[in-house]
Design a protein around this nucleic acid. Structure first.
Length: 488
RNA sequence: GGCCUCAUCGUCUAACGGUUAGGACAGCAGGUUCUCAUCCUGCAAAUCGGGGUUCGAUUCCCCGUGGGGCUGCCA
């Protein structure tokens, strides 16, 4: 199956576009087909330099790489590759013009010389009369000669489709089932603009036919335009592709998700440190369900299980809470060595000692269960690379029933116990045994809280035994002594 | 206004026409634990309304209501 993503280079990749791209990609891979990217740069006013690069980067990050069309080459340059090039619509103008002319000749389209001013005025009047704003066909009856004369005179014009008012257009959408439109409610859409560029409608039909798209997945916002596209395919003598209009991503107030609702650019999530696996997992579950209780999905699992008939019809609110939960799940899923490798550069940037730390993997493992984003790692490992400064207030804990007065006694006990632990028993297990069998009059928490606080200087951190183990006996006793000195 | 479309816990969602309407996130309450996090257990939480069809509707049909989208020489 051939599917495609047709981004418009007007900014960053929208999170909703990433979702349709994902669906496209999953179906293409599932059928051992092709997923391609075509750039819809037909609006020169809104073109943003660098937008293509940014979008391709976002796609690549998510693991959705195009098999064909516009993509990065090995050097990171934007190229077009494939049998249907060019894949930039701005390079296909002759094609659109040719088909627009064909439609005019067949009587399915006509030239229109109305000025934007007249159209605005017309709409204003229609609205005042509470009528649906539609083109009034002012130019539809122009004779061939008049048209030719105006064109040679250099009058700016557009080509409009001539929608048969008596027709009923029906189509079977892969998600919504049968949809039906009355011809008289469909506007005579502009196909070719005054600047010679096509509108989306013409370009979509021409390209998706020529580029042999089997399935068009797009947002529900396009459903209203569907009959126009069906008509165009019919007039051009082409079979339309299959269509799947997916539900929209909504903001908290149930409106179409847009910039003002917070982060909608994929790049924002990359920057915040979300894992690509998390975003893919999350987006897949927004509008689709596997029919089982499985919540965590790899891309491969999605490729295997995804299907359009389990896609929801109603819009889904883009709610970050589950995204954050997934982030935690995936963070814990990463293997300890990979986790260490991922955070090492970040930690080393702040503490150069980490770069040569042979024991780094063990330290990293201590925070993996507690971390949400990689960039929290340096902060979470500070206690290891920098001498902590525990305060008396921290060392004593009301919750652990430890008073300041008890501290000297507690530290004395800790030192006695720990200094007796031989190096070979300096492990979580060994330390645990030693402490637990020498509690004396203390409860475990009364010893371990001050120990942990003394070693890390933090109100929360990995456990006391774990910290002591990676710190080693010498350093542990050293920090213990130092903390003890402030309790006197 | 017109056209299209949608409707199950706060959110994402499950349920051949027969279930105590299920799961997940969030929330709340416990438990494990030296803290935090993790983990475990439990609680609370929904079929928009009205008519049909049917022995039986979350499910099928109709009418409302509510939400959303479109209504550009934007995509």
């Amino acid at each position: 199956m051939r599917t495609r993503l047709p981004p418009s280079p007007t900014g960053f990749l929208h999170i909703g576009n990433l979702r349709t791209a994902l669906f496209d990609f999953l179906l293409a891979k599932q059928t051992k087909g092709i997923f391609y990217v075509r750039v819809e740069d037909t609006d020169r006013e809104r073109f943003v330099p660098g937008a293509i690069e940014s979008m391709l980067r976002s796609l690549q990050w998510a693991g959705i790489s195009p098999d064909e069309g516009v993509m990065f080459d090995a050097n990171g340059e934007v190229i077009q590759k494939g049998p249907h090039a060019p894949y930039f619509q701005s390079e296909r103008l002759d094609l659109y013009k040719k088909y627009a002319e064909e439609l005019v000749e067949k009587g399915h389209a006509y030239h229109c010389f109305c000025t934007p001013e007249r159209l605005t005025e017309m709409r204003k009047q229609q609205e005042a009369l509470k009528k649906a704003p539609m083109y009034d066909r002012h130019c539809v009856h122009l004779s061939k000669e008049d048209v030719a004369a105006k064109i040679t005179a250099g009058e700016r014009h557009v080509v409009r489709m001539k929608v048969p008012h008596e027709r009923t257009v029906t189509f079977n959408d892969d998600i919504r089932g049968e949809v039906r439109f009355q011809g008289h409610t469909i506007d005579d859409q502009v196909l070719l603009k005054g600047d010679g560029f096509p509108t989306y409608h013409l370009a979509h039909v021409v390209d998706d036919h020529l580029m042999e798209t089997d399935l068009v997945i797009r947002g529900e916002e396009w459903l209203s335009s569907l009959p126009k596209h069906i008509l165009l395919f019919e007039w051009l003598g082409w079979a339309p592709p299959k269509y799947a209009h997916v539900p929209l991503l909504l903001s908290k107030d149930r409106k179409k998700l847009s910039k003002r609702d917070g982060d909608v650019a994929v790049e924002e999530y990359i920057q915040k440190g979300y894992l690509p696996e998390v975003m893919v997992n999350f987006l897949a579950l927004l509008g689709w369900n596997p029919g089982t209780t499985q919540e965590i999905f790899t891309m491969d699992e999605l490729i295997e299980q995804f299907s359009l008939d389990r896609v929801q019809k109603a819009g889904a609110i883009f709610d970050l809470e589950k995204l954050n939960w997934l982030q935690g799940q995936w963070m814990r899923k990463i293997s300890p060595t990979e986790f260490a490798a991922r955070i090492l550069p970040l930690v080393a940037e702040k503490f150069s000692a980490a770069a040569t730390d042979k024991d780094f993997v063990r330290k990293a493992a201590l925070i993996q269960e507690r971390i949400t984003f990689f960039n929290e790692a340096p902060e979470m490992l500070t206690w290891f690379y920098k001498e902590p400064h525990a305060s008396v207030e921290l060392l004593a804990s009301e919750k652990q029933k430890i008073t300041k007065e008890q501290l000297p006694e507690i530290f004395q006990a800790l030192e006695n116990i720990l200094s007796d632990v031989p190096e070979k028993n300096w492990t979580v297990e060994g330390l645990k045994t030693a402490v637990q069998s020498n509690l004396g009059n203390f409860k475990q928490g009364q010893l371990l809280w001050p120990l942990r606080a003394a070693l890390t200087g933090l109100p929360y951190s990995p456990g006391a035994f774990e910290v002591a183990e990676v710190l080693g006996k010498e350093k542990t006793l050293e920090r213990l002594k130092k903390a003890e000195s402030i309790t006197q």
